[in-house]
Design a protein around this nucleic acid. Structure first.
Lengths: 307, 307
DNA sequence: TCATTTCTTTGACTACGGTCAAAGAAATGA
DNA sequence: TCATTTCTTTGACCGTAGTCAAAGAAATGA
């Protein structure tokens, strides 16, 4: 489905210099930092177990989650947990709601070991950074932050899904909860689009996935009878995925969907309290127009001519 | 020795935010990119062998070098090379000068496999980057380049070594060869400092090491009888280690050495053709002064008051 | 020249990481 | 209710990575 529509982004060929730069960095980083880190993290504990302890963390985790997060074989994980349990670092109990599931939690001894891991890793990072001036450290932090942001963004895939799909409903629920909290007057979930409005010829629902997890969404619906004007609604980004430039990308993809469906214009409205959204729309080529509906939440109205 | 002198750089405590940022990036990067890369690089070849093939490279390498570069056990390496030889990917021959040494070289089949490795790695990087706009790719390349530059710089250790030490002489030879090429009139190596001038109370010789390899140097000698003025000479950075900010750091460390020895002023001269050097000196607080010697190579003369 | 060092090979051995299949227990859906 | 699915455990197994010690061959230094 996704490949069938010409998106407005991500179409140009990748420069060989960009590829070379990423590979160069990868070689350098994994050899110098990654290897070092792995070696010191565990100290006299196998790496797999050290990672497992870290991943169980303060709150504990179900074996199913750990398997997914670490990408481990069920048998292998089961044995490792058993070994850690025998050492008194981990305690396993049955999930209260579903007794097929098992929850692993750190004992106090386990917590101590994780704390030591953290201290070692901090010391390692500190040793690395102390060769730099404060100004240079700041630069490094900035560069790493920027790189991580872009690498995350690059890994996010936007897909067209059915409006009734569980991922779509989960996004919409999260969206409703988010803005219910932000709007002084609250938000009535009954106002959300219905699955029928965002499917087939007239509309679409987009979900952005980061490593299988839905982290953002946006809806496109028909606005006028003639099918010339579409409305963009429910553009939402999970709090974990903000500041990546994802909203801008979703907007571009929604516009692509609108064009594909023969729309000439897209509209949207936004709440008075969402000031960042307003500047985003302006930056993406939207211009303010008069109120076009009697929506109680809408305070500013925008429009963009496509093509 | 190094810890004994108060350097002008690298003394402040590392901010926890900088440590956290580095660790966050490390976690994300190794999990997402590093692991992926390792998995795809080898395809149906063990990682160790894939890395070995890559490291042997076009020019071949001695087993001793490979052992040092990859940090492998001698027996382990020997066996891997044997296995690759048996597969027809590598050919081993005796070193012409020293028949204890063995040289491993890629056969044409080996070269093909390395080329395939490279293609796969390129494809992986390309797949990663194509989720970004060209503008974002450029940003990523810039951020990774900046981070790599700073990480390299952080790993470089500057040490005081004897002027007669092989590393010192190697640096000076490389320095002489470098500027012999750059100066239109060539360079006479007889002008280089003698070991005695850069030791003890009156002078010092600094070598910067990147992972055990000397990559830069600088000398401090007494200039006047009274011991108030020192001269900085032979500041050289290996071409592989340029643009890291290393010259600036060496200069700062040399000034620290001068202060430690009770000097109040440092001087230096520079050739007309080394224009970058001149702006570096100005940026580091040096001011131009009249010619203070009859050195044929010196065209501009600088001085800095210490303390 | 002879002892020492350097470089490599070989044998023996280990731990870690990982896979696969079978089976049991609990939840789910028809 | 019964078949199916989900989740975990257990047994059996494998390849890779890596270590250690012994020994031989060549170079080096005294």
């Amino acid at each position: 489905m996704r490949a069938s529509h010409p998106t407005t982004v991500n179409t140009s060929a990748v420069a060989t210099e960009d590829i070379a730069s990423l590979r160069r960095f990868n070689r350098y980083f994994t050899r110098r930092i990654g290897a070092l880190d792995d070696h010191y993290l565990g100290q006299n504990r196998p790496l797999g177990e050290a990672r497992l302890l870290f991943e169980i963390g303060e709150g504990g985790a179900s074996l199913r989650d750990l398997r997914a997060r670490l990408g481990l074989d069920a048998g292998y994980l089961s044995r490792m947990v058993k070994a850690l349990d025998a050492e008194g670092l981990v305690r396993v109990r049955v999930h209260p709601g579903d007794s097929r599931l098992r929850i692993a939690e750190l004992t106090s001894a386990g917590r101590v070991e994780v704390a030591e891991q953290n201290l070692r890793a901090d010391a390692l990072a500190e040793g690395l950074l102390k060769g730099l001036t404060p100004r240079q450290r700041e630069q490094l932090t900035g560069a790493l932050g920027c790189a991580q942001r872009l690498l995350r963004l690059a890994a996010i895939r936007v897909e067209v899904v059915d409006g009734g799909h569980p991922d779509a409903r989960a996004c919409l629920d999260a969206y409703a909860a988010d803005i219910d909290e932000r709007f002084p007057e609250g938000y009535d979930p009954a106002t959300l689009v219905q699955p029928g409005e965002v499917s087939g010829e007239s509309g679409a629902f987009l979900v952005a996935y980061e490593e299988r997890r839905p982290v953002a969404c946006g809806a496109l619906t028909r606005f006028d009878e003639a099918g010339r004007v579409a409305e963009i609604r429910h553009v939402w980004v999970h709090s974990d995925a903000r500041r990546l430039g994802l909203a801008r990308r979703l907007l571009a993809e929604l516009e692509g969907q609108a064009e594909e469906r023969g729309y000439a214009v897209v509209r949207l409205d936004t709440h008075a309290s969402l000031t960042e959204a307003q500047s985003l729309y302006r930056a993406c080529g939207y211009t303010e127009i008069p109120r076009y509906n009697d929506d109680a939440y809408g305070a500013y109205f925008f429009e963009k001519r496509l093509g």
